[in-house]
């Protein structure tokens, strides 16, 4: 069954879009990340214009993070203070990101930048995850208990000024760190249409040194507002948010997420992370291949302008 998408201005198979949303939801359920990093490239593969894919995906991220935040909030797993500081950076970053997006669109390089950023980001994260899970897997086989690390290690970044106390996260760090982190995630969110959870979560654990218990909830809190900001700004400046597309993705996600968490409950964490690493690398390779191979046609058309 085909449906016409009013903003993307083309017809698409309903089930393909629903399945994409479900796949993103499945990932969200399995790995606790938004799944946008997979859904956006997939949308582009099936022929949705990258600009529409990114903006509509940001809309879907809102739905994803609110349903996850519901649980986290009730369990008290949100460090509100940290969340707000991250959000400050996130709002600045996403607003700058949308302006950057608009500019890149105007000079005709947005598709290329989206593809390159995805390749860089996905391949580095995929490799990190793959090595980490392989190392854990082999270490565990040698020594089932494994050595425990410190609560968190101290780096040079902890000497930055403007220190703030984050009680829930048991941290006393410079506010520049979460603001900077939020800023970077905001830019990613605006240009790639991802929530950024798969960058934010490891960064909160390894860079900020937050306890794992509050990481997911706090990142969801920040992602929710940043995604809302991106959706709003994209709608105002570029008019590229396709709500019909977003609706199908959201409905798919609602179905996919519980299946994902059921699978996650049955598989050991290392295997799960290994699987995710392979998946992320696969998407990165596919995107890289698209950039490297000779295109079917060297020519493409930009935006049609009807002059008065």
């Amino acid at each position: 069954m085909e449906i016409y998408l009013p903003i993307a201005e083309q017809s698409m198979n309903v089930f393909v879009l629903f399945a994409l949303g479900a796949a993103a939801g499945l990932l969200a359920g399995m790995f606790g990340v938004g799944g946008g990093f997979l859904a956006t490239p997939m949308l582009i593969f099936v022929g949705i214009p990258p600009t529409v894919a990114v903006a509509s995906q940001a809309n879907q991220v809102i739905a994803n993070s609110i349903s996850s935040l519901q649980v986290q909030w009730r369990r008290g797993n949100v460090d509100l203070r940290m969340g707000l500081v991250l959000l400050l950076g996130g709002m600045l970053g996403s607003s700058a990101g949308v302006s950057l997006f608009t500019w890149l669109k105007r000079i005709g390089q947005i598709d290329f930048v989206i593809a390159v950023m995805y390749v860089l980001m996905l391949s580095s994260i995929g490799l990190l995850m793959l090595f980490e899970s392989l190392r854990t897997y082999f270490r565990r086989r040698r020594d089932p208990t494994g050595p425990r690390g410190k609560l968190h290690t101290h780096y040079l970044v902890h000497r930055l000024p403007w220190k703030m106390r984050f009680y829930k996260s048991k941290l006393y760090i410079s506010a520049f760190l979460p603001i900077g982190l939020g800023f970077v995630i905001g830019i990613l969110s605006a240009i790639l249409g991802v929530g950024g959870g798969f960058v934010l979560v490891p960064a909160m654990i390894y860079l900020l040194g937050m306890p794992t218990s509050v990481v997911i909830g706090t990142s969801n809190f920040q992602i929710l507002f940043v995604a809302a900001n991106v959706t709003f700004l994209q709608a105002v400046t570029n008019g590229t948010v396709d709500v019909v597309l977003a609706l199908l993705l959201i409905l798919g996600g609602v179905v996919g997420a519980p299946i994902g968490s059921r699978i996650a409950a049955k598989l050991p964490g290392v295997v799960l992370r290994g699987l995710m690493a392979v998946l992320v690398l696969g998407v990165a390779m596919q995107l890289l291949f698209e950039l490297l191979r000779t295109p079917v046609s060297a020519y493409s058309l930009g935006v049609r302008e009807v002059l008065p």
Partner: peptide, 16 residues
């Protein structure tokens, strides 16, 4: 944009 945000919030909340 606001409409899109409200839709996503409502569906996400309900769905969850």
């Amino acid at each position: 944009g606001l409409g899109a945000i409200v839709m996503a919030l409502a569906l996400g909340w309900l769905g969850g």
